[in-house]
Design a protein around this nucleic acid. Structure first.
Length: 109
DNA sequence: ATCCTGACCCAAG
DNA sequence: GCTTGGGCCAGGA
């Protein structure tokens, strides 16, 4: 039988799915994740999902603000940077080198 | 329903 | 580079 989930649940599931697709050493922005999931205006929801996600369920460190900027504050920002550098991601000053680490989601299929 | 806040984004100045 | 204002969506008080 057809289970009709709330539209918000479908959207959140799609977003989580895209986040999990980002491989180690690559990154994507909040807006790119939202767009790839089919919800180009829901970048804020991406952040909300990451915040509420159980530890270890998502590679949260691979999602950045526009231009490769870390949006967390204080110690959390340092942890994200450290985790990314561990995965081989290199920074240009305060921003991630997007030209080298930008992950491109597949659009067709 | 209103107001506020947030791991946002972008165009201007 | 920086700050501002407006736009966006959702959740909580």
């Amino acid at each position: 039988m057809m289970l009709r989930l709330p539209k918000s649940a479908q959207r959140d599931a799609a977003i989580r799915k895209m986040i999990r697709q980002i491989p180690k050493g690559k990154v994507a922005t909040y807006a790119q994740v939202a767009a790839a999931a089919g919800y180009p205006l829901c970048h804020r929801q991406v952040a909300q999902i990451l915040r509420a996600a159980p530890p270890g369920s998502l590679p949260w460190q691979r999602v950045l603000g526009a231009g490769g900027q870390i949006k967390l504050k204080y110690e959390a920002a340092l942890e994200q940077r450290t985790r990314l550098e561990m995965e081989g991601v290199r920074f240009r000053g305060k921003r991630v080198d997007m030209s080298a680490h930008q992950y491109r989601f597949r659009t067709w299929e």
